[in-house]
Nucleic acid binder design. Structure first.
Length: 161
DNA sequence: GCCAACGTTGGC
DNA sequence: GCCAACGTTGGC
């Protein structure tokens, strides 16, 4: 089978809850708790080897903290069936679960958070759910140009695979 | 803490 | 099927 080019994504997380440093600490993390259909569809489109910019929302400062990689493709987010969980969804059918998650692992930490203000200055990012007013989507695709521009602005390079 | 913008819910 | 009300997100 021909290898496909890894796609690029952005994942938002509140660092008070789970930040890039936490991902580094735990090694691998199931990206659970996504309860938005568009975001879920993006999760389901992810493939092992894809890269994701790890964005800190509701933070000081807000911005991209590093790069993660997808290490497991979408599977059932079990929290939807956990009645104790805040992510419980009583209307999800176990035969056809509504919500999915992927596993992510750290790939490269930015030396400093690339702030939202800095991202806004990059022309490549002019049209993105990140910079468009009022968009709250927490998982969305990033173009190769946006990905490259973000890494360049952060002053980092990814080793070639 | 404020508030704009959005998605979801539920009454009709 | 419409749409008002509500809850949530997330920047500031």
């Amino acid at each position: 089978m021909m290898a496909t080019v890894p796609a690029h994504w952005l994942l938002k997380s509140e660092p008070d809850v789970f930040g890039y440093a936490d991902l580094v600490r735990v090694g691998t993390e199931p990206w659970n708790g996504v309860r938005n259909y568009l975001a879920r569809n993006h999760l389901r489109a992810m493939k092992v080897g894809d890269r994701a910019l790890f964005y800190h929302s509701n933070a000081k400062p807000t911005g991209i903290a590093g790069v993660a990689k997808i290490v497991r493709a979408a599977y059932t987010d079990d929290l939807q069936f956990d009645s104790e969980s805040v992510y419980h969804d009583s209307r999800s059918d176990p035969q056809e679960p509504r919500w999915s998650m992927v596993d992510v692992a750290p790939l490269l930490a930015f030396p400093e958070v690339l702030t939202l203000a800095q991202v806004r200055e990059l022309p490549e990012w002019e049209s993105s759910p990140l910079t468009q007013k009022g968009t709250r989507l927490s998982v969305f695709p990033v173009t190769p140009l946006q990905f490259r521009a973000a890494l360049k602005a952060a002053g980092v390079k990814l080793a070639r695979k």
